[in-house]
Amino acid sequence: MPTVSMTVNGKAASGDAEPRTLLVHFLRETLGLTGTHVGCDTSQCGACVVHVDGKSVKSCTMLAVQANGAEVTTIEGLANGELHPMQAAFREHHGLQCGFCTPGMVMSAIDLVRHNATPSESDIREWLEGNICRCTGYHNIVKAIQAGAQAMKG
């Protein structure tokens, strides 16, 4: 079994991974970072979104070995002492209910804001094409992301 090494949330991490092991399973099972979720088997729900070298990636569509040497940020790595502004905005605007889609939503939203500092409602709705939420109807997620984007500026 190959050994895979990467930087996860700022710390060196390594472990054995079968060639077929997906990044999401490596994070969850080998590294114990269970904040990244698995909601589907066709790469469509976005519950598994993490950042790899600064870009949002569905960690179910990437093999662990492909992330060898990469910088990975998961939902566990966002808050340092206090919530990241995007996390805080989700709380303030009730952008989560059961919380299962939330890690992927937050990671995806942060990447959106890096591309587009002041996204409109339709920018946000379009960007979230790859993130499914069954609970919120997206209304409050959209509000949260707009507020989060604003807060990330300051």
Binding site: R28, L33, T34, G35, T36, H37, V38, T74, I75, E76, L78, A79, L83, Q87, F90, R91, E92, H94, L96, G99, F100, T102, P103, V106
Partner: peptide
Amino acid sequence: IRRTEDFRFLTGQGHYLDD
């Protein structure tokens, strides 16, 4: 009132069954 449960969900510290 803002939700008590949000902190753990927002920081990846929920305990869903597969976790």
